[in-house]
Write a protein that binds this DNA or RNA. Structure first.
Lengths: 189, 189
DNA sequence: GCAAATTAATTAGAGAACTAAAGAAAAATG
DNA sequence: CATTTTTCTTTAGTTCTCTAATTAATTTGC
């Protein structure tokens, strides 16, 4: 422990209490600011984390994500994969090309429908994957484990709430924000 | 409201209670899984959001991030900017080149030290920025506002906790994970 | 004061990611 | 069986990102 934090239940509790008492006097817009700042920190930390990971794994972010998905979901088509990664088919094809050149995946034509291609991990690809993604969350997991039960519970509940609020379809809001255009997305976790 | 969610205090409270009661019977690794899944959802939602935003703003992610930082922090050098964005100087220079070509920023040489260059938003750049980033968080903010005070407080406290755990320097853990190599990072929030 | 070292930014060169558009092959439709 | 649709690949063009020079300005040591 280098940057020491109070790790005792008292320490955690008092921190939380501090936040709660500060909240009483906080305007809604202040609260929103707080929540957005915290979110940005979380997201930035994730990015940094994943960048570092990428270096150690010797694959890029999108490549790693692809490997993870293929590993988790088994045989799937390029289009499914593209949908899962929120990328275009063409992009997935080129990422696959590079992974194939390095022999981390291979392409298997479907027997039943010869248009379809199933990317499949090679042994080498599996090995890369097994070394990489564990490191990613290790730190966070270790710290999370050290928390009190009640705080773990609070965090789960809160994150789920936030996730809901964020990934709920924007349908209800779109009428006055929407710009048309469905979108894509990327990055590795 | 299309995917209706119970928006009443009762609805929210009962959902939270549900989570809490489920927690009692949940193993630590299950909890960790829950928390990671929720995190991934949050991050993915953010990415999708920012992708959409990027389309509407007609700038790319890194470009938008750069504009946001310059706007927020005023006169700064390229190296500061690079540090803030966790990119190399050279990368920032090329991003600036493109923004300058589109006249969203201009370069101002420092008077006191002529090696230094201060990127500055043009009116057009400010306009781009003002249309874009509001939309980004609107949905989330609207939903957040609709929550009960206690739930807003819980979410802030939890997110801050998570942010701490994530962006605390990895120093203490690195001895057995570290691969050397400082890292960089990217994306727009 | 001026040569040497340092600092700031740019340029050059190259790999990867991404998109849109067009093309090729297989399967479904009528 | 000709047409349409689906699935994947190819191509061309932009952007992002890095490392390794390069240029210019400042600071340091003597």
């Amino acid at each position: 422990m280098t940057n020491e934090e109070p790790r005792t239940p008292q320490g955690l509790a008092s921190r939380a209490e501090h936040n709660l008492s500060a909240l009483k006097t906080m305007s809604t817009s202040d609260k929103i600011e707080e929540v957005l700042v915290a979110l940005r920190r979380v997201i930035r930390a994730t990015d940094l984390h994943s960048k570092k990971l990428v270096k150690t794994a010797s694959v890029t972010g999108p490549q790693l994500l692809l490997l993870q998905i293929v590993n988790a979901k088994g045989d799937m088509t390029i289009s499914e994969l593209a949908r899962d990664m929120s990328l275009s088919q063409a992009t997935v094809t080129t990422i696959l090309d590079r992974l194939q050149k390095r022999e981390l995946i291979e392409r298997v034509r479907s027997e039943t429908d010869k248009r379809k291609v199933h990317p499949r991990l090679t042994d080498h690809g599996r090995k890369i994957l097994s070394t990489a993604p564990t490191a990613l969350q290790d730190n966070f997991v270790r710290r999370f484990r050290a928390l009190d039960e009640w705080e773990q519970g609070m965090i789960i509940a809160a994150l789920q709430r936030v996730a809901e609020m964020m990934d709920a379809k924007d349908i209800d809001a779109s009428p006055f924000l929407d710009v048309g255009a469905l979108d894509r997305a990327i990055p590795p976790v």
